[in-house]
Amino acid sequence: MSTDYQQAREALGLRLRELRLTCPDGRLTGAQLAERLGAGWTKSKISKLENGRQTAEAEELQAWAEATGHPEAYAGLLAQLRGFESHIRSWRRQLSSGHRRVQDAITAEHDRTRVLTIWENVLVPGMLQTADYARHVLTRHANLMQSPRDTEDAVRARIARQAGLTEPGRLYRIMMWEGALHALVCPPSALAAQLDRLMGVVGLDTVQLGVIPFTASLRIFPGNSFWIYDERRVVVEDWHAELWLDDADSVATYLRVWRTLEQSAVYGADAQNVISRARRALPAR
């Protein structure tokens, strides 16, 4: 967890403790506040929130403000929460109503971006996915995260975003690890169609599609996937959350990672050969 994020969470915890200790009808102990808040609250939870070891939900902040006699403090607490959530967006929170909302948020970033730089180490990037491939990927993620199912809405939103591939003035610099071409996150027939789609993308004037073959000499290991939006923001995906980073140092780091990886990539006909080889290696069924 980033230091900045943890410091922000601890700062929110200090504010929560301050509200507990300045309750208008007398300072409350952790146990007393937990009892006042009711079901689902324990002294241990109070301690974790105040010490920055747990992140509160918005409704928990509102309940805390009211239980400590400071209902007017809720707006400030929520602003603190939203401040650090804007950088680390947990999947649990993002997927509380399904994948469509996540797709809409990333579409907003795409709409204001002219140059999108993508590195993918395990999947075909969403900008190039077929509907069937996207459906399997989103279903598996929903299963893992135990989130509401709105798969078809999410697929439609993802596919609609691909209209940008044919818009003049845009550039998509997309690079993949060869492993993404072999990962059976869908049936072989769906992956075959997906690889055919990639073959057709090579040569588009708005797309620079590179592949790092298994046999390439690597300058750095192929780590997490990431997306760089106009060199102003980086989105990095992990199992627990997405990181939305917009400080200059972070952007510069990911650009440096991209350029280092690119030294091992092949493009054009060479990329098509790698994709074709993966296509031929697919199991018959």
Rank of each mutant, 00 (worst) to 15 (best):
Q103Y: 10
Q103P: 11
D104R: 15
A105T: 01
A105C: 04
I106L: 14
A108L: 13
E109P: 05
E109C: 03
R112T: 11
T117I: 03
I118M: 06
W119A: 01
W119D: 09
E120V: 09
N121V: 05
L123G: 04
L123K: 08
V124K: 02
G126E: 07
M127R: 02
T130G: 10
D132A: 06
A134D: 04
V137W: 03
V137G: 00
H141K: 01
A142C: 06
N143E: 14
N143H: 11
T151P: 10
R156P: 07
A157M: 00
A157N: 06
R161W: 05
Q162D: 13
A163M: 00
G164N: 15
G169W: 06
L171C: 13
L171A: 14
L171Q: 08
Y172M: 04
Y172V: 08
I174L: 01
I174S: 05
I174P: 07
W177A: 02
E178A: 15
E178K: 13
G179M: 07
L181R: 12
L181S: 04
V185C: 11
C186Y: 09
C186K: 09
C186D: 11
P187I: 02
A193S: 13
L195C: 06
D196S: 15
D196M: 12
R197E: 11
R197G: 09
M199K: 12
G200K: 07
V201Q: 00
V201N: 00
V202D: 12
L204W: 15
D205H: 11
D205N: 13
T206C: 06
V207T: 05
Q208N: 12
P213L: 03
F214I: 05
I220H: 10
G223L: 12
N224D: 14
I228Q: 10
